[in-house]
Design a binder for these strands. Sequence first.
DNA 1: TTCATTTCTTAACTTAAGTGAACGAGTTAA
DNA 2: TTAACTCGTTCACTTAAGTTAAGAAATGAA
Lengths: 193, 193
Amino acid sequence: MQDLLFGFISKYISLTEDEKKAIVSLDIFRSVKKGTILLKEGQRSQDVYFILKGCIRKYYIINGEEKTTAFFTEMEALTPHCVINNAPSEYFISCVEHTILTVGSPDKEVEIFTNSPKFELMCRILSEEMLARQQINFDEFKTSSPEQRYLNLLQSRPDLIQRVPQHQLASFLGIKPQSLSRLRARIIEKSKE
Amino acid sequence: MQDLLFGFISKYISLTEDEKKAIVSLDIFRSVKKGTILLKEGQRSQDVYFILKGCIRKYYIINGEEKTTAFFTEMEALTPHCVINNAPSEYFISCVEHTILTVGSPDKEVEIFTNSPKFELMCRILSEEMLARQQINFDEFKTSSPEQRYLNLLQSRPDLIQRVPQHQLASFLGIKPQSLSRLRARIIEKSKE
DNA sequence: TTCATTTCTTAACTTAAGTGAACGAGTTAA
DNA sequence: TTAACTCGTTCACTTAAGTTAAGAAATGAA
């Protein structure tokens, strides 16, 4: 399990065996079962996550309705907003599947950063990369229709469509579950022609 | 003009006079007139921007149609995607107004980073902050209707509605200019009741 | 100024998403 | 096994956005 993490890190910086041991000794690996809520609205959690295996989901409850805005899967990181601005969380995070992840905290990060500045470099590059990818995703979302978004998702993250319930996918695509059903039927109808 | 930049930086790290001089000597300040295109689709520019005064706009041309996806104004930074993945740009960046900005490059950044590690810290915090804000914006966009998005923008960035043409605002909101006109008329109609 | 272009609005019509309701399939709990 | 619930789909109806076209107002250039 740890090898997944170190394999990922090795794409950015190289660690000595001592550094690896130091990380393992932080005891950050967690195994969480399906349905577990990692973060609730209103909480001021300090936990940041990195998914090794599985899938977690971020959602808001607006007017009693769940609005799913993101899924995080293997080798993806999530720093909840409440960690950054130290305010109560506006959203929930729960496990779509049984998930193995690391749980970090700003304290632990600072500890690592001061001991080896390589991490600062990796984290800067990582968040710049994530920011850039996020902007591209946002742009694609803005410039396409729900149907295009669905077809796009089918290309870019086909696994999601299998592992996630339709109604969660729907709000992820910015529409209602009924519209997603209809849209899918429309696509199948078109492909028959 | 430089004071704007140093005032911004001072919110994150403190610079010595020598460091300030070093930055000024990099000759990164530019004054660009309205309509100037800073980045064209297909270009592999290495320029990163920080707006001191004015407004720039990011847009795609999809099927011959301009799709504006972002505006950057005072004290906002933009690292185009092509700088990060070193691939041809998929979008354009142009000046909405006469704009004063700094133009950096990864080379210059590395030079600064190696001379003072404080900058690495600032840039990591900055991009983490931007990532978090970007995610919140994306969430708001996904979970609201075009009308809500417009009302939201009216609250959060009222200046944009004044300084940017309607048809650019429309595609920024993910709709057509005609729909924005209609939507505005609808809001005024409602407020009369 | 005058002519052309851009920008914004309005209108009529089409298309697709939202809404509320109903149904069957599958799951869970009593 | 039955009852309650969730989930996905379908349907009829409503609402809003897309499309096409036209025209008024503002802007810019010759």
